[in-house]
Design a protein around this nucleic acid. Structure first.
Lengths: 133, 133
DNA sequence: AATTAAATGCAACATGGTTGCAAAGAAGAT
DNA sequence: ATCTTCTTTGCAACCATGTTGCATTTAATT
């Protein structure tokens, strides 16, 4: 899967900035912050263009946010075949990495009747196997 | 429980801005955004003061964030007796309210060995019983 | 190659995060 | 109650980021 394929499959024009972002994310094996992506691209694009491209990619669901907290947000590609509506992530407080975890059992919560859940996001925080002291 | 009791129990000086914030949050029956709190306080405080007070309240764990997404963050008091390390929230995409949900069963995920979970945050998104069409 | 709708780059402005510093205030000691 | 000390406040100032308008350029179709 290359950048323009990704873009076209979402009915987006293939432009240099969008392709750059998707390229970086395809090659990264982990979720990246916006700043990391910008740095890797070496400020090759105007900041407005980057801002708008990024916004589009989120709106069109090419990529999604992984929010650790208000000031710590990562982004990852929406790859086909991955459950978009039940995310489980693990954030290591030590090395700051985010790992995707395969959800094993649908977490069943008892909700008041009439509540319809369309999306479940689970964020686990702690130490990963490398950082465990 | 009044604002200064809350502050003192966290070893924080009781100041007008901090008390205002805690007061508003004690009276609110739901999680509020920073902007809502500011508005209710009627810009009575300098923005730097508000900023620093707010930061302190988070750092000292008087309040905690509930992150819906990058641009949608709510805050709620850490009340004694509430599980701080296993939050379950429900966000209604229609009325935009956040409900606290009592976690029923500890959600057990299969993690690679060596992963230590110290905090679990679960965000359910969908429609609440009032907004269900 | 011509057409057309969309994306770009730039300027400009708004907002929010952040720091330094002198003045004001809170809380314990006298 | 007053003094003392440490903290917080308010202001100015700065920087990063979000956001929009608009003329120019570009992608992708005819």
């Amino acid at each position: 899967m290359n950048p323009s394929e990704v873009l076209h499959s979402h009915r987006l024009k293939s432009t240099s900035c969008r392709e750059g972002i998707v390229e970086v994310m395809l090659q990264a094996s982990r979720a990246l912050s916006e700043a990391e992506i910008k740095t890797i691209l070496g400020n090759r694009h105007d900041r407005t263009t980057f801002y708008r491209s990024f916004k589009t990619l989120i709106e069109k669901e090419v990529i999604h946010q992984i929010v650790i907290d208000k000031n710590e947000v990562r982004y990852a590609l929406n790859l086909p075949g991955i459950h978009q509506h039940e995310h489980v992530h693990f954030h290591c407080s030590s090395c700051n990495q985010v790992f995707c975890v395969e959800p094993v059992s649908e977490a069943t919560m008892t909700l008041p009747s009439g509540f319809d859940v369309s999306e479940t996001e689970i964020m686990l925080k702690g130490k990963c196997n490398h950082c465990k002291s």
